[in-house]
Write a protein that binds this DNA or RNA. Structure first.
Lengths: 259, 259
DNA sequence: GAGTGGTCTAGACCACCAC
DNA sequence: TGGTGGTCTAGACCACTCA
């Protein structure tokens, strides 16, 4: 095959018109990556499923296996795909996370594994408050689902979460559905609402417990709490969940790795 | 050249004795990576300097350029090296961080760039306290340097840091040297003590300000503060700094990206 | 044994930089 | 103009999985 480094995908098939200025050059493997991401976004392959093999994709896109490989490499590095030698490449899922909670960075101070119980407090639909609407990119007056829940270690409440979701995308979400669900909440979102969280941004503060929070977390008013505001994104950098958590950090801590 | 995939480096030169059980197979590019890391660790190339080109390294190790490339790719992903097209590959440094503080995740709530002033409060040598010694892997009774400082935004104290360093590695560190230094502290460590921080682990909690901290941060006793314990590592996963910070988070927050 | 991802090579050309 | 990293190809063989 001729060397077509730097040419747009299938440049030898497509007519190449005048470049309008700022050709936005991108290497073949990135173009392929972006096609693959679009396929994921469109639901061509669902979380947990195998995608076609590297050789097949190479044939389909008419490039060498190495080029497909580099596209998949990047997607694996971003946790969009998971490679398994001898078996294939799979769409990442929140189902089999060994950690159970991929995005929850709260860890017991002793080494013991987390093991938290969930206690659903509330689940209701309402007009999205202004700040929530802004962060989720909703129209004002658009509906939202609010979920409030506790995470407990034994009998001790450790986390109080307020979760906000766009009402349109999460039409069938009810208290019953949430109560009945066993497994990570993000797995429920994947399975029932075709929403797959791929990354999140968190803003962390120290705050003093207010009356309501203190009551729910069984703490004195004014006790220091970790406030964690998480905005989660799905394919295409679209924010789809706002989560405001209050973490009790006397026997737990938020761990982070700086690289 | 023959295909030597999966064989230890220079297997065609070295006699290959009986494998003792658990041959600990590692691909060529990883062996090369580990040799390169050893070179960095040994100070063969200093932070900011160019390392030899890919072709030269390939010739030196008698492998193909692609194999060297893959080793360097991984090291670049870990922020050990920085590639610059057309110029070469450079040893990463804390000197030119656009962000000034590569490991400081505290950000103003409005978008404004951080711009913090430093105020050195203390710098003394002493026997390392037991917990510090344990975390830094020091012998009991070994000496340590303690640095205490404030970071201020204008006149408002925002961060109170207590920094612990192994006394042996930081022999010449004095108040005067710290006072005189302009630029990131980690750059000083690189330049004067040949200690390059490559990664860090943080444990974050919410705490109530004690009397001393409250005084230094100009806050009421009991005010909620973010407690950030950072353990920083140099080449070979050797911990070389313990930093206990208290962050004031009324106008700032700790930002984090989950992937 | 067939199929998958993983490693390695050799060689081509492109994009960028400095002299 | 020559050197550096960046992209792409083609083809070989290895390691792993499963029928």
């Amino acid at each position: 095959m001729e060397d077509n480094a730097g040419m747009p995908l299938r440049a030898d098939d497509l007519a190449m018109p005048e470049l309008p200025a700022g050709p936005a050059f991108s290497p073949l493997y990135r173009q392929i990556k972006s096609l693959l991401v679009k396929s994921l976004q469109g639901g061509a392959w669902l979380p947990g499923q195998v995608i076609p093999s590297e050789v097949e994709l190479a044939a389909r896109f008419r490039v060498s296996q190495g080029t497909v490989r580099k596209a998949i490499d990047e997607m694996a590095a971003e946790n969009l795909l998971v490679r398994r030698q001898g078996k294939g490449t799979f769409v990442a899922t929140h189902a089999e996370q060994a950690t159970q909670y991929r995005f929850l960075r709260l860890t017991p101070d002793d080494g013991t594994p987390p093991e938290l119980q969930r206690k659903l407090l509330e689940c209701r639909r309402m007009r999205a408050p202004a700040d929530v609407a802004r962060l989720l990119g909703l129209n004002p007056a658009e509906s939202a689902v609010q979920v409030r829940r506790l995470l407990l270690k034994g009998d001790i409440p450790v986390v109080l979460d307020d979760i906000w979701l766009p009402g349109t995308a999460f039409k069938g979400l009810t208290v019953e559905r949430l109560q009945a669900w066993r497994g990570p909440m993000y797995r429920l979102f994947e399975a029932e609402f075709a929403v797959h969280m791929i990354r999140a941004e968190e803003k962390i503060r120290a705050v003093a417990a207010g009356a309501e929070e203190a009551g729910l977390l069984l703490l004195p008013v004014g006790a220091p709490l970790l406030s964690v505001e998480r905005l989660s994104y799905t394919y295409g950098d679209r924010p789809v969940e706002l989560r405001r958590g209050l973490y009790q950090t006397t026997a737990h801590h938020y761990r982070n790795e700086l690289i």
